[in-house]
């Protein structure tokens, strides 16, 4: 049940952030730390794709088809969200 773990960790982080329990020094650097962690995660994800021979082989056979499918669903998803964006974010998406 990874999803429950993820939710619990996010709530814990949100609690610390909300109560200002993270030292200011650390808060200033949190963006950089977060980005470095993200890059590390993406690298690991890449490695796990590269290690799986089956994945690499299947990309060779039906890679183009899959990429066209992926692009097409992404484009139509963006159009779909664009259509309702003003209903969900009344101020045109800029709400800080």
């Amino acid at each position: 049940m990874n999803i429950l773990l993820y939710i619990a960790i996010m709530i814990f982080g949100a609690f610390l952030g909300n109560r200002r329990l993270i030292p200011k020094m650390l808060m200033k650097k949190i963006d950089t730390i977060q980005f470095l962690c993200l890059l590390l995660l993406l690298f690991i994800m890449g490695v796990s794709i590269g290690l799986d021979e089956e994945v690499i082989q299947s990309f060779g056979t039906i890679g183009i088809q899959g990429i066209i499918f992926a692009l097409s669903s992404i484009v139509f998803s963006i159009i779909g969200v664009r259509l309702i964006a003003s209903k969900v974010l009344p101020k045109g998406g800029e709400e800080q």
Binding site: L5, I9, F12, G13, F15, M27, I30, Q34, L41
Partner: peptide, 19 residues
């Protein structure tokens, strides 16, 4: 390792949301 990395990142996302 992917789950561990993800957990760490989601912790930061949580801090961001909470603050």
């Amino acid at each position: 390792w992917i789950s561990a990395g993800l957990a760490l990142l989601l912790f930061f996302v949580g801090i961001d949301i909470g603050s």
